[in-house]
Amino acid sequence: MSAPLLEIADLDVAFHGDGTPVQALSGVSLRLDPGQVLCIIGESGSGKSVTLRAMMRLLPERRARIGGQISFAGRDVLAMTDRQLRAMRGREMAMIFQEPMTALDPVYTIGAQIAETVRRHLGGTQAAARARALDMLERVGVPSAARRLDAYPHELSGGLRQRAMIALALSCGPQLLLADEPTTALDATVQIQVLLLLRRLQAELGMGIVFVTHDLGVAAEIADRVAVMYAGRIVEEGSVAEVLGRPAHPYTAGLLASSVEHVAPGAEIAAIPGAPPDLRALPPGCSFAPRCRHAVAACDATVPPPVRPGPGRMARCFTPLGFAPSGHAVEEHVA
């Protein structure tokens, strides 16, 4: 087995502020092999963005208590100096967001921003950097790319801005792309274009992607593997076909069953009752137990350890669906 590109072990993140601390992540473990696409699926507040920001060390360091390990290409991200972080961000590890304006500077042209990033990380002449910027815009399918080099972000449509942000993120050939709901704000006809684009670029450039989404359909289009998050924990992980086709965790099964695609028009949808817990007062056991039809007494007592319901799969559940209840914990997290 090849060395992982990214390995996260027992990551805890708690935000300390005025009141009770917010336990945003609890014992998150993930692994990504080079060239793999991992989707993190979860509902609002489940900790998806915090996970990505932790990988980039973008959390507010004074308020966020971080525990556990993050290793990227064999290096300890949590031990990196500011200088090492600056060299890594945008060069080896790049990020794209739901709202391109958070990544693009409104006062510089698209071409200038990409060229600046290229020169900062890769050096070379201004002309070479600009040629690289043009090449990137063409690769991401911006029409009339030469003209668009001199456009300001606000002069582009939403879909083109998203492509420009992708071009910026990929301009230095990162090994790892972190994508935080990059298609959520886009129209349906544009979303599918951007998904196909990312899939093609991923294959061409061979980079790994961690792609955050709350949309199961988006995961089905792009993921090799899927990790399902609930209340700051990964509750299930496995190949996209298995997790979506044969979910082991009752929360994943509940999410799938509550999609409108799966019921007759107007019929009652099998909605999950209740709401996620308050991250300031997590229950001692499984956070999903209060909403779970399959919960047993043990679920309220302790957090279920990760078990392996099948090859290459992990679930944190005492009663994984369709698998014999199993107490044996996974010693090390194997993807």
């Binding site: 709350h214 509550s258 999609s259 409108v260 009652e268 099998a270 909605a271 999950i272």
Partner: peptide, 10 residues
């Protein structure tokens, strides 16, 4: 969120 959306649609 999808699970809440299902409740409100019902």
């Amino acid at each position: 969120d999808k699970s809440v959306q299902a409740q409100v649609l019902n």
